[in-house]
Amino acid sequence: MLENGKTRGRGGRAAPDLLALLTKRREILLLAVLAALALGVSLRVPGYLKNNYMNILKGGAINMVMAAGMLPVLLIGSIDISVASTLAFAGSVAGMLMRDGYVGSTLAMILIGIGVGALVGALNGALVAWGRVLPIIVTLGMSYVARAMIPMDWLLGLNKIARIHLTDSFKVFFIDRYFIGLPYLVWSAVIVTALTGLFLRYTRTGRSIYAVGSNESAALVRGVRADGVKTLAHAICGAAAGLAGVLWLGYYNSIEKSTAAGDEMYVIAACVLGGVAVTGGYGKITGVAIGAVMIAMINSAIPQLKIGNAMITEFVKGLLLLGAILLNAALRRLARRRELIGRRV
C-alpha cells in the first residue's frame, strides 16, 4: 500500500475536495445516483415518481428494516444469509398464533415476531461467537433449518397463513393507518432505521460493535466483550428480520413456505450499495437506508421501463451490486492513498 504514495506525491496535495467529500460523505454520491435514477426513469415513464413514490417506500420498507438489522452484523465483519428464512419463519409463527386465536393484538404480534427472530439471530450469533463457526456456514445451515420448519405440516399442520386467519385490526394496521401522510408500514421502517442509527452512534455497546469490527483484538484489550457483542449484533439482525416477518404479514396479509426466498441477497445488496464495508468496521445507517430505497426503486421501475424481457431485473440488480462493491473498494483505496500522501508532509 505504501508504494502507492510514492509516485503521485504532488497531485495528491492539490486533491480536489470533491473526492474527499465523496469518500467521506458517501450519502451525497448515493443521493445523486438515486436522483439520476429517478430522473432517468421519469424521462421514459412520465410522472413516474408522482405515481410511484408511495409504492417505492412501501415496497422498500421491509427490505429497509432487514437491512438496518444487517448493518450491525456486517459491521462486526460477519454476515447473515438466513434473514429471509427468519422472516418467513417468524412471520408464520406469529401468524399461526393469531390464526389459532392465541394472539389478537397487533402489538403482541410485533413482539412475537421480534422475539422469535431475535432467538434465531442469537442462536446464529452464539454459534459464530462461541462456536467459532464461519458465519456463512452457520447462517446457511440456519436458512435451511428455519425454512424447513416453516410449514411444519409434519408437526403443527400449518400450510400457509392467509387473509382470513388475521384479525381485521391487524390487516389494516400497517397499510391503511396513516401518520403525516405515510402508512405505519413506512413509519416502522423509519423508526427501526432511526433506532439502529442512534444505537450504533450514541451507545457504548453500539460503539463497541464498530470497535469489534475494525479491530477485534484491540477491542478485546480495551475491555470489550467481543463474543457478547457479536451475539448481540446477530440477535439484532434476527430481531429485525422477525419484525420484517410481521410487517410482511401486515403488508401482504399472507405468508407461506416460499415467502421471501432469496431476498437475503437484496438485503445485503442494500447495505453494500449504501457503502457498508463487508470486511467490518465501516458503514452508516443513512447509506443503508438510501441503498434500500434504491433497490426498491429498481424493483418498481424496471417493469414499467419495458426493456428486454421481464427477467432483466435480476441482471440489473446483480450488475448494480457488483458495481457498487467494486466502486466501494476503489473509492476506499483512493481515500487511503490520499491519506497516506497527506501524511508524507
Partner: peptide, 21 residues
C-alpha cells in the same frame, strides 16, 4: 480487501441474471 464470499455473492446474482436474460 473484499472477501471472496461477498464477491461471489455479487457475481452469483450477476451470472444468474445473464442466464435469465
Amino acid at each position: 480487501e473484499l472477501f471472496a464470499m461477498i464477491i461471489t455473492l455479487a457475481t452469483q446474482l450477476f451470472y444468474r441474471g445473464i442466464a435469465y436474460l
